[in-house]
Design a protein around this nucleic acid. Sequence first.
RNA 1: GCCAAGGUGGCAGAAUGGUUAAUGCGACGGACUGCAGAUCCGUUUCCUGGGGGUUCGAUUCCCUCCCUUGGCUCCA
Length: 483
Amino acid sequence: MVRAFRVYDTLSREVRAFVPRESPRVGLFVCGLTPYAEAHIGHGRTAITFDVVARALRRWGYHVFYVQNVTNLDDRLIARGQAEGRDPLELAEFHFQGWLRGMDQLDARAVNLYPFATDYMPEIIAQVSTLIDRGFAYAVEGDVYYEVAKFPDYGQLSGQRLEALRPGARVEMDPKKRAPEDFALWKAAKPGEPAWASPWGPGRPGWHIEDTAITGRLLGDQYDIHGGGEDLKFPHHEAEIAQAEGASGKKPLVNYWMHGGMLQMHGEKMAKSVGNVSGLEGALRRYGPEVLRFYYLNANYRSPLNYEEGKSLEEAREGYATLAQPYRRLREELLRGGLTRPGRELPPEIAKTATELPLRLDEILAEDFQTREAIAALYGWGRMLNEWSAKLEGLSGAALVTLGTPYRWAAEVLGLFPERTSAKAPVEFSALVQVAIEARGRARNRGDFGEADRIRQSLLQAGIVLEDQGTETRWQWKRDGVA
RNA sequence: GCCAAGGUGGCAGAAUGGUUAAUGCGACGGACUGCAGAUCCGUUUCCUGGGGGUUCGAUUCCCUCCCUUGGCUCCA
């Protein structure tokens, strides 16, 4: 059985119950990036948004096939390649590998397939041919254009009316086009550019056609969810609808359009063209993947999110540290004696809350993926655990595991609180730290606080933080975004 | 100019036709501590952009104005 959920659909502009075309299968396509430069944290936001969507759907029993395309050839790649003296396809591959590393660090592994545009040339050429045959497109001097006037639904997604697209002020009229709003499906090759043979002569695909050629092949003429950044609504997604529905004769192309809000830098969209980008790699290096995920998910995915360099992620780090702290305690406690350790059991009402909270979290997410609401609920649980922290010591391993249930939900769906086995200190190392702690303890006991503080300071420089709790001193790794 | 989404506390950012409008960050005070950290308690708290309307009652519905952001063929 799959869980029911609701999602905001941009086309109908309302939150609608999700009905898959062929339950439990769900086709999910998200517009990926054009890797002509290093990805920035705005790209990361969209990726994490749909990573959580896919994670949630899978948890709820859907069989999600998640495709994210890669535009590995376009004007910018060609221009950039020429500027750097590199082959554009090789340049795209290079930056795409960087993107994959970022996704890997972020634990965003929900994508099943990253198809490259240039690997779908037969599909692209076939779809362009079909559009010409069906009267939606026309060829001129090696170019092929989509004739927007032939597709009456054009503009429904973005609410644009065709007349509004004709002011001409911003649209340069290409004499080869029949109308200014017509867009290129195929572009004749210019000297020195990568080109593929086609019925219209050597050339390369326009930007919009790759997506519908890819989805037609991988997801069929119609599928469930199409996602992407809000900035792609027009013209890109509008064009996709016109191409796919024009070529297949079936509508709608997709049942649900999901658009993620922009990440803004000081009130303006972060974009390479604006020049206000903050790199994903740098943010990951400085704050770690969890803080970044937390930052993204601690907002409504549809709302713009204002990013301030030197502030936003610092705040996220603090917020995440507070959120993660109770779970840290819990896991620390579990390490003493392990899962099977004997001890007291939980009062029934606490155990009930712990096991029911994940169901409530599912409910929250099932209402248009309100990750922020889910996080608020986790804060509430953390507060309860903190009030309880003194009593944790006598609890059985099973009881501790139960208390951690909501956090494991978050690990599965939100990708927070990962088990980091790699960071676990070896036994020998822990023993060394313990020696230092004991030395400091003796210094404290004889009132030599200068010496005690020196030891604490030295450990801090090694990245180890000491916390005194009653007569006990505990240690943990300094949090630099890594819980 | 046109299309779309928004305007809530110092900041980020929820929610609802009707009790004290979440949650987090920050700040201040207190408890605990040799100090610090973590935690707990308290304070900081706004009649929800301006105006008009509907209603017994609106932040939530309608109209209008102002402002912000995105889009108007580079864009996650």
